[in-house]
Every structure is written in C-alpha cells, then in structure tokens.
C-alpha cells in the first residue's frame, strides 16, 4: 500500500480548506508540500496521518503504530531532557528496552545530539530542537514519516543536517512527507505538491513542474501588467497567459534554463487565480 490521499476535501465551519486533493507518498522518497500560511499544508498532512477525517475522498496510511508525525511545534517536551523525551516517546510506543537503546544511540549520533542527551529540550537551539523532534518521530522506525515545517526557523547549517536526516530516512525505505513554505527547499524533494487556497495547483518532480506551467514568462524593462509581474532582485519578470499576447510587444519568452522554480510557481499561481476569477465572472448574473 502506498500512503496518500485521493480526491480529499476537508471542511471546517462550512469553509472548504482542502478541495479534491490527490497526494501520494511512495516508500523510499521525500515528497514536499509547499504553500503559504492557510494554503492547507498542515490540514493535508493531518489528514494523511488520520488526525482529521476528510469530508470527502479517501486516505491511505499504515497502522497508527507505523506512522511518525512531527507537528509544527516540533513535538518535544521542553521541561524534559533530550534523554527523557526519548524515553517518554519510546514508552508511548511500547518499545522494548533493547530496541529503544539501539535506536536512541543510532539516532542521537546521526542527529549529532549525543552530547546534548542530558540537556533540557527547552534549552536547545531551534535547530537542535527540530532535530530532536525528528528523532522522536523516527524513534519507532515508522513506515510513514510526516514532518510539518521541520525547518522553519532553522539556520542553514542546521538545515543541511536536518535534510541529511530526512534523506537518510528515505534512503532506508521510509515514505517521507514534509511541509515547507519555501520553494528552494521544496525543490530538493523527489516530488513536490504546490497548494494554494486548499487546491493543488502544480505537482510532480521539480523538472515536471518546470515544464508544465501555462503561458510564458518574459523579462521586461517595465511591467506591462503590474499584477502579473514580480521582481527577482533587480530584475523584473512578467507572466503572459498566452504566448501570442507578447508578439506585439516584441518581448522574448524566457527559456527554461533562464527560469527557476520560484518563477514557475508564481506563474502557476497567477494562472490559477486568473482562471478562478474568470469562473466567478462567468457564473455571476
């Protein structure tokens, strides 16, 4: 069985926060969910681990005991030491003493937390605490590991260590799903799902997403359509819904190697939002 969702929708207080979402997390790979606050990332991950029941659609996941879940607040107990955190979670999963000791030694070493075992979790730096959260989620050797914004507030050096832990888990066969609000992080994953307003607006490998955006992107000196343009440092980019619309301006569509993942996702967002407002116009009397 491959963990994931098919056609999943979720409503809170009659407001739709996820709409018809397909999402799969194959074993041995890292899948990223990316979007801003309120895009539905946490809701999707919580659905995936069975903490929220969808109002429609199907969710596939292994037995609860085979799921590791790390919430946005890292799921550590600040008043307990690193070692006590591990004992507590090991107890909750009824792990045998020998299994627990083996996993503790191995994971602490991989996370470079061995020397911090007697420190209070509340005294750790943000990066160390997130790594502890990861260790706790991985302690019982889950089949499905779900990490909600594991790298938020983590500095780049600790982030590389955290990514190494995540990739190691996938390399050992675990199915890993993680949320992030940063595209430069999401594009490192094997597969990316971009959410906006509870809907999937792009999905696939980085390379698949790069070639699938509609219309074209130009680099004008001055924005023709401010609502469809954005800056990359001192340079300007503009999205054109149809390639023909730029013929008159003489602007050249940028090649794929001149664009990056962020450009393409912004173009997809612009397309998605413009077609959403077209729909609204067409149904209004």
């Amino acid at each position: 069985m491959i963990s994931g969702t098919s056609g999943v929708s979720v409503e809170f207080d009659r407001e739709t926060v996820l709409r018809d979402v397909d999402f799969t997390v194959p074993a041995g790979s890292v899948v990223a969910v990316v979007g801003g606050d309120g895009a539905g990332k946490s809701t999707l991950l919580r659905c995936l681990v069975g903490r929220i029941l969808p109002s429609a659609g199907e969710v596939r996941h292994p037995d609860r005991r085979l799921i590791g879940y790390m919430s946005t607040r890292s799921g550590t107990w600040r008043q307990l030491t690193v070692g006590e955190n591990i004992d507590f979670v090991g107890g909750a999963f009824s792990m045998s003493r020998s299994d627990l000791d083996r996993r503790r030694t191995d994971l602490l070493e991989r996370a470079k937390l061995t020397d911090a075992v007697d420190r209070l979790a509340g005294d750790l730096s943000g990066g160390m605490r997130q790594k502890l959260g990861f260790v706790l989620a991985m302690l019982h050797d889950p089949e499905l590991l779900v990490l909600d914004e594991p790298s938020t507030g983590v500095d780049p050096v600790s982030r590389v260590e955290l990514w190494r832990l995540i990739a190691e888990a996938a390399a050992a066969g675990t199915a890993v799903a993680m949320a992030t609000s940063y595209l430069d992080e999401a594009e490192r994953a094997h597969n990316v799902t971009v959410l906006d307003g509870g809907r999937v607006i792009a999905a696939g490998t980085r390379d698949e997403v790069m070639v699938s955006f509609p219309g074209c992107i130009t680099a004008p000196d001055r924005a023709m359509e401010p609502a469809a343009s954005w800056r990359r440092g001192s340079r300007l980019r503009e999205w054109n819904g149809e390639e023909t619309s730029i013929a008159a301006t003489g602007a050249r569509p940028l090649r794929l190697d001149e664009l990056d993942f962020e450009d393409v996702v912004i173009a997809s967002l612009l397309h998605d939002r413009s077609s959403a407002s077209d729909d609204q116009e067409s149904i209004s009397p």
Binding site: I266, L269, L270
Partner: peptide, 14 residues
C-alpha cells in the same frame, strides 16, 4: 516574508 505564498512574497518585495 516567511510563511507567505510565493505571490504574496513577490508583492511584499515590490
């Protein structure tokens, strides 16, 4: 711009 979607991020940089 942490925590905002890519388009909102672009608008903040504008």
């Amino acid at each position: 711009t942490s925590g905002v979607d890519p388009l909102a991020r672009a608008r903040l940089w504008d």
